[in-house]
Design a protein around this nucleic acid. Structure first.
Lengths: 205, 205
DNA sequence: GACTTTGACCGAACAATGTTTGAAGATATC
DNA sequence: GATATCTTCAAACATTGTTCGGTCAAAGTC
């Protein structure tokens, strides 16, 4: 009988536990040796299998990166769901919290950041499925900024550039430090002044 | 007799013309197939040699990338040397020219940009020599902004983040387009307002 | 001219990679 | 116990960057 739910390929039906073990080991190796610093044979060793056995769980090495890519965006989505103005909270305050949260998320795991936002793996292009996770995330981001008073698309684009620019510099040129992180509040203030989000009341600051 | 000038290895003494031909072909292939989309055998074919012969001119594939890396910064330095306030020119105007020049330089050759500013080649680390070209460039950038009125290091860092952020978004998310490029003048204005560089006189605008 | 030296080049091979193939054991199902 | 289905892997393949050993021609040297 044909399963009416979405078709799962042979590989997809394999033990989910082993599958997750492989991805976990891939994260571990990526953080240790760099995203491209490990081979399938090494990864297989790590989970007690031979290299070809991995192909029972993933169609290719890129397919493993693809799962990791999606997991990254799921984790971001998880965190981002907690952002937004609390009742009575000044929008600029909420803006700063969200911006710092994003930057903290990125800098706390540079490997994950590279996978999600940079093109460090030659030939790797996220699948439509994984890509949609990143699009969903962008939609949430757009909605959040709308809630905070950023309605113009160009202003959205400008803030995207500023926040990713700060993050990128921080990770590339001062990993583990605070050099660009410290500039974030100021950047938020400048930007908020420009788009007309009112300053925080002096007393609460 | 020992040459008292700087020692040149065997590879270094080979015909400079062939050497340059190899690098040119490497640029061509990189733009066509991506920075990592070609093999040494393919490159050798392109210049009418066999793969091992390349090792008479370069110590490794990375050594070829290294030359390209340095060439990129030499080209940037060449352009950047023409930036700076003309006599009587408002600083903010000169700022905009330089900023647009930088962004134009980056977006006009995304492959070169990737090599210079992103880490898309696994394991590739520029040699001390090539790296110094990028440092020299940063020093020029710092001097230029100083001339225009940006003295605080934190403001320098902030502008670095903003301009590279805009550039990065432009190349990654709208290659060949203008979406983030159009935001540049506004970004300069916001930044200049913040650091106290006076606005351009209305008449000249 | 013979002889050596040097420069330029490449065929063959090496180790490592991601991946495919074919088949072997293990496990379940009847 | 027989059959089918999982789960696994040894062996092999094509491709990669790179090394080794050698060939061949040009340039000096006597």
């Amino acid at each position: 009988m044909i399963d009416m739910a979405e078709q799962r390929s042979l590989a997809d039906r394999r033990s989910d536990a082993t599958r997750e073990g492989i991805v976990e080991a891939a994260w571990r190796l990526s953080r240790q040796e760099g995203l491209t610093g490990w081979s399938l044979r090494r990864l297989a060793d790590e989970v007690g299998l031979a290299a070809p056995s991995l192909y029972a769980y993933f169609d290719s090495k890129h397919a493993i990166y693809d799962v990791m890519f999606r997991q990254g965006y799921e984790q971001l989505d998880d965190i981002a769901s907690r952002w937004g103005p609390a009742p009575g909270e000044p929008h600029r305050r909420a803006f700063k919290v969200a911006a710092a949260g994003f930057m903290e998320f990125c800098t706390s795991d540079p490997t994950r950041y590279q996978l999600m936002f940079q093109r460090v793996i030659p030939e790797f292009v996220p699948s439509a499925d994984a890509y949609s996770a990143s699009v969903a995330n962008y939609e949430r981001f757009r909605a959040l900024l709308g809630e905070l008073g950023v309605t113009d698309d160009r202003e959205l684009d400008l803030w995207t550039a500023i926040s990713t620019g700060l993050t990128d510099q921080q990770i590339s040129n001062d990993p583990g430090g605070q050099r660009w992180f410290r500039l974030l509040d100021r950047a938020v203030d400048i930007f908020c002044d420009h788009v007309g989000i009112p300053p925080e009341p002096e007393g609460q600051r």
